[in-house]
Each structure stands twice: as C-alpha cells, then as structure tokens.
Design a protein around this nucleic acid. Structure first.
Lengths: 208, 208
DNA sequence: GGGCACTCTAAGCGCTCGCTCAGTATCGGG
DNA sequence: CCCGATACTGAGCGAGCGCTTAGAGTGCCC
C-alpha cells in the first residue's frame, strides 16, 4: 500500500510526516472526531473505531488522548505558518502579498475545515505546556501578517491608523472561516479566498 | 436581597428575567463554567458547586444539563438580536447605522465575553431541536445586518459587490471577538468597537 | 397547630470514561 | 525451528459522569 500525498476523501494529506501508518490513521481519525464533536466529547474508543482498531491500540502509538491533540495542533499551526510565510516572502507589492496571504490562508481554513477547526478551536483543551508552545507559534503567525501591513504603510500604499488592531482583525476574519464554512454550501474555498482578499485590501485602505 | 440589574463582578446582568433566584445563580454559574472549560468538560457538580448548592439541586430547576445550555443560548441570542435591531432601527444614514450596529455588537461580545463565548461556540452541543431554534434566531441576526448594507447600496453610499458574502464577513468578524478578546489585555470593549466600526465601513466602501 | 407545597441534601445507581495489562499473532534473523 | 521484537486485542480497573430517590428543613394558609 503506497502512501500518496492525497487521498480520495477530499481532504489533502498534510499528515505524510506522521509514521508509522497505523499512527497516521489514528491521527486522521482523531482530527475527524475532534472536528465533529470537540475534544472533550470525543472518546478514545471512537477514535480507535474510526481507525479500524481496538481501543487499546491507540496507546501503543500515543501516550494519552491529549498527545494526539497536541500533535495535531502543532502540525496544523506549522502548516498555517508555512502558508503565510510563503505568501509573505513572494515578490510583489505589499497589496499583492497581503491579498495572496489572505486568500491562501482562507483557502486552507475553508478547504481543510476539519483540521482547521481542531487547530483553531481546541487550544484550551491542551495542558499548560503544550498550550504555551502553540501560543508561541501563533505569535509568529501574527508577526507574519503584521510585517506585510507595516511594509504597506511604510511604502505609503496602505492607510492603517492601528496596525496591531488591524492585524488582529484580519487574522480573526480568516480564522473564523473555519467556524462557519460549510462544504455543502454555495461557496468554494477559492471564492471565499478571493472575497476576503478584496475585503482585507479595503480594510487597509489599498485602492484596487 | 434585592435583585439589581448589575452586580459587582463586572459582568452586566442580562439574567434578571430568570427566576427564582436559585435558578438564576445556577445559570450564571453554568455560563462561567461553560465559558471556561466548554460544555462537555463542565460537570453538573461543578455548576452546582459554583452556585453554592449540592449537585442534586440543579435538577429541581432544570431537567438536564443541556436545558441549561439551551436557556443560556436562547437568552443570549435574543439579547444579541435586540442590540442589532436597536442599532438598525435608529435614524441616520446607512453608514451611521452600520457603524452603530457593529460597535455595539462588538462591545457586547467583548464586554460580556463569558456569555458570548457560550452563545457563539457551544451551538453544536445542543440537540437537534434546540439547535434548530437557535439557528432560526441567527438567521434573523444575519437579516438585520444585511438590510442595513442593502440600504447603503440602494442609497449609493456603499460599494459592495457581494452583499451576502460581506454580511457574513462582517458578522464573522464581530463574533470572533468573543474568541480572542482578553479582559486583562490592552484594549477596552469600546476601543475594539470603534476600531471595528471603522474597518467595517471601509469594507463596504463608505468614505469616512 | 397541622398539612402542604416548595426547596434542598445525602447517598448512590448505572454507565462510560481514559487507560492498563496479560496474552496472541506475525515475522525476520540465527 | 526456535527466538525475541513488534503490533495488536479482549477483558477489565478505578474513577467520575449525569441523573434519581428518599427524606429533611422551612414557610404559608387555614
């Protein structure tokens, strides 16, 4: 059985780094279950069942249920940070880079809504140490967006009275997509990404 | 003991309608616990303990733990809808009404973050019937904002290519305040309300 | 003062939870 | 042909869950 980068279930696989195969199956099952019911309402029996294994098998690959959430959260945040860094590092005007960052960030939240939900909304279910690690990653996400906005202000392209506040609002807008986006709804991730890129450019006062 | 509209704990009391007194104390305790830990991670023993009562006392006033969440969710949504309706019904230009609606809606989410968190993020913990009732209330919230934006477009004050999408984004932005707002942080609810009203006016293309 | 309605508690029932452990199947190396 | 290592299962432990029940305390009407 070869491990492809994409599976047929619509969700791209950013979990190729998780080995062995059984550990990845458990992790993918946990992402689905956490996204559907929330961390606390999900049982280890449910996770193992979705992965086609007995409840005890989970504990061969993970020490606790919380370790599963921790792993999911870290990998997810690293992927989100990677997306923003790629967009921020591209050539082009601040407006182009901001639009690119927002649309790709939104596409990730909409298309991988299952993962994004767990990553963005189950932070409080982690213990103090794991939470601190994730919060550090979030600060780097924030810095990435803030830098683009600062570049735009410095270049005279943007009109932003409150850079930290606007950065917060832009990220908040993107992240909340994971809450309301519906795969069976009328909008594709691409449509929402384009709409949001336009709205954010308006927010920073960049004329189209 | 007189029942004032406000208590000393910083959170205004929209729970005056809940009687008798013991039922209200239980409900306020449940709001705090649900906001801190989430619905599923909160135990009925914890709620009763916060209200200074035995675990069994909860079941004199509420049939189940879910009924508590349902009551909180309905009252909260009615309050949110009320805030938007008041702002939408005032006299003034569409821009003034939209700014008013956004700033007051945001102030409610930031100032009453404890309540807003439960109201906005625990919807999935309700059963099908209760959830359907709450979703109906949300549609009315959406309609309230959409009407203001449509008025602005009709009057030629706003430039909005996608009215439903922009409505969704505006509400999403406001609601997510309940996720990130920190009472001990640098911003007051009023500051966030003003900032967000400005950002939303930019989103709809209304010149300041 | 007796009866009743209301409010609350102590105790605990049945259940499911996260997690453990003894034992089994499989397989490559000697 | 046996060995130990690896991956997994069946059974179940102690704990804590939502919720119930029997009964006690309190105040109000007659």
């Amino acid at each position: 059985m070869s491990t492809a980068e994409e599976t047929a279930d619509g969700e791209p696989q950013p979990w190729a780094e998780v080995t062995p195969d059984a550990a990845r199956r458990l992790l993918v099952a946990a992402v689905e279950a956490f996204a559907e019911r929330g961390y606390h309402a999900t049982t280890t029996r449910d996770i193992a069942g979705r992965a086609g294994m007995s409840p005890a098998a989970l504990y061969i690959h993970y020490k606790t249920k919380e370790e599963l959430l921790h792993r999911i959260s870290r990998i997810g945040h690293e992927k989100a940070l990677d997306i923003l860094r790629t967009a921020a590092g591209r050539e082009g005007s601040p407006a182009e880079r901001l639009a690119d960052a927002v649309s790709s960030f939104v596409r990730w939240h909409a298309g991988g809504r299952t993962t994004a939900r767990v990553v963005q909304y189950e932070l409080d279910s982690l213990g103090p140490d794991a939470r601190a690690e994730i919060i550090a990653l979030r600060r780097r996400v924030d810095a990435e967006v803030r830098t683009i906005i600062e570049d735009g202000v410095a270049a005279g392209d943007f009109d932003v009275p409150d850079v930290p506040g606007t950065t917060l609002a832009v990220l908040s807008l993107c992240i909340d997509v994971a809450r309301w986006f519906n795969v069976t709804g009328p909008r594709t991730p691409e449509m929402v990404g384009d709409l949001y890129a336009d709205l954010v450019l308006r927010m920073v006062g960049a004329g189209t």
